[in-house]
């Protein structure tokens, strides 16, 4: 499995499904392994639905579509149960990420893998939300006092809660980046400009969804699973365009993240963006390579690059002293990055 293999086989298939006609058995094996590793196999399955392909690949993709559909049902149900739990409080409840995409029927939600339920509530009411969820059967995941104190002081969410019957996690956010990050998006604006769905559930407006996805991709993570986040960005731009996006990104302090996300989406998925947005900076090639760093088994390659990104993402989230303390605590508990 030489170095020639990369996740480009996946981005090409997503961008141009008909290009898979040229794949041999090894090509399909690689494509499916990488799509699984990137949690994009359900998305791929929808993109390729109906195209001619080997029987074995068709069966695997049919399984992936069924699995994504069941995941969609479960995700929407978690949202509904959270809505019922918070309904008596009368506070706005904004769905984020995958659950928002499927709840609103957006193309980004087609076949998408959805993990935890992420919701946004007003910061000053997060304590009420927490209390209501605890009454409705959610419980703390981890008793670790360091992690708990860390979350409460610095993160943009409550420590994760898990429902004791359904075994599903909920992350309750009051903004979209940690409080330790230099960038402070306008959390009140996110909620004020959110859009209603049925039943009092809300979603961010499309430009805020894009800002959130870009913040998540570059500022709030180590780029792991980046191709899926980037596919979200591709779908959102393809569906809603870029009108007003620049101004909104600037308002949240996310101009460079949104601009880079748009360039990377255009590069990997052919996302339609204005000509003037397509000028690469010196970091773009590094991001582009990192996003594709997978071998023919779906395993991440370029470990040195990965470590650099890991530190970088922590630097963005936390001032240096706090970073040192955080990593020390993690390492003592046996957690090794990379």
């Amino acid at each position: 499995m030489g170095n020639a293999v990369s996740a480009a086989i996946l981005t090409r298939a997503l961008r141009d499904p008909a290009s898979t006609a040229g794949l041999d058995a090894n090509g399909w094996t690689t494509l499916l392994a990488i799509a699984r590793a990137e949690q994009l196999i359900g998305t791929l399955a929808h993109r390729l639905d109906g195209l001619p392909m080997p029987q074995a690949a068709a069966r695997i993709l049919a399984d992936a579509r069924a699995s994504a559909e069941q995941g969609r049902v479960a995700a929407l149900w978690e949202a509904e149960m959270a809505r019922r739990a918070l309904a008596p409080l009368g506070m706005p409840l904004v769905l984020l990420k995958g659950t928002a995409f499927v709840a609103a029927g957006l193309s980004a939600g087609m076949g998408r893998h959805i993990g935890d339920l992420d919701i946004l509530v007003p910061r000053e009411r997060i304590g009420e939300a927490e209390a209501a969820l605890l009454v409705a059967g959610w419980e703390w995941v981890k008793p670790d006092p360091y992690d708990d104190a860390y979350y409460r002081r610095w993160m943009h969410e409550l420590p994760p809660l898990i429902h004791r019957e359904r075994d599903r996690m909920i992350d309750v956010h009051h903004t979209i980046l940690p409080l330790t990050a230099r960038i402070r998006p306008d959390a009140e604006g996110l909620i004020a400009d959110s859009l209603p769905l049925e039943n009092n559930l809300r979603i961010l407006n499309p430009n805020d969804m894009l800002c959130h996805a870009a913040a998540h991709l570059f500022a709030d993570g180590d780029l792991a699973g980046g191709l899926r986040n980037l596919w979200d960005i591709h779908c959102l731009i393809a569906e809603f365009g870029t009108a007003g996006l620049e101004a909104r990104a600037a308002h949240h302090g996310l101009s460079s993240a949104v601009a880079r996300a748009a360039r990377q989406a255009n590069h990997h998925y052919g996302t339609p963006i204005p000509e003037s947005w397509r000028v690469w900076d010196s970091m773009d090639p590094l991001f582009a390579r990192r996003l594709l760093a997978r071998d023919g088994w779906g395993r991440q390659t370029r470990k040195l690059t990965r470590f650099a990104f890991y530190l970088r993402s922590h630097q963005l989230r936390m001032p240096p002293l706090m970073l040192a303390r955080h990593l020390y605590t993690k390492w003592r508990k046996g957690h090794v990055p990379g």
Partner: peptide
């Protein structure tokens, strides 16, 4: 061998 040379699962 796997049907069509395409495995359902990979193990490392």
């Amino acid at each position: 061998k796997p049907d069509g040379g395409i495995p359902d699962f990979n193990v490392h």
